[in-house]
Amino acid sequence: MTASAGLAASFRYTFGRGNPNRRQVLLGLPTVLFLLFLFAIPVARFMLLPIADGTIEPYVKALTGELFLLVIWNTFKIAAYVTLFSFLLGYPVAYFLTVAPPVWRLIGFFCVLIPFWTSILVRTYAWLVILGRRGIINETLLSAGIIETPLAMLHSTPAVLLGMVHVLMPFFIFPVYSVMQRIDTNLISAARGLGAPDWRVFLSVYLPLTLPGVLSGATLVFILSMGFFITPALLGGGRVTMISVLIEQYVNTFLDWQFAGALSAVLLAVTLIAYGLMKWAMKGDKKW
């Protein structure tokens, strides 16, 4: 069977009467078409642009040019750090939301959601006010006599990480929270009753059980980080180059869309690979 015949057959099955889930498939169709026309096709066109002239040169450059390898590596590192910190900070928050009494849970959700609902620009500017040379922290330290010259906190990789973690942490917290919430508390009791001290309960039972949530939260945060633009642009002071910043430059400043397309494709590929790896990591859990 040729590929196209196979495709046609699968198409016939998907939409045909033979498929018991046909109704659901049809229900999902408008959304799929919507995404296809407004998202997938334009993106595909943009990424085919580099080879539209019958040359693969833009792709070769994107994959071998020193600048682009450095920037992609840089982007990858930042995304990895953001993911790590989102985990370290977000996990306890998700846990707090899970076990807190209702009033505190409400307050906690509020605190997590308020920034989530605030525009990313506003949130990022808030950090400018806090971390700046004349920002809240520096002013406080200066007036307390702890430091004599303002600390340079803004416009650095740590500032970018901070801003990104702040923006992205909810994306980690919610999947983890929803998994934590579904964990049978009897499992925790069982582990304790069987002789596990609290840290063992956490490492051997609780953490593994929340792993699916951790992985999907981490995947979300990582993927969103890979394409982040505003925060690194504002808090990095131009000293933190992420691939999206570079793509923007090629689109807007150089009008070199072919190369921008190739870079986007590389970004998409790296992201998909990361996604694939995480999926693969999660497959270990499939058995249970």
Partner: peptide
Amino acid sequence: HGPEVRERWNLWKLSHQ
């Protein structure tokens, strides 16, 4: 010369990060 100089610029900046 913009494109090539800008590429060099970006690379240069990375080395000063």
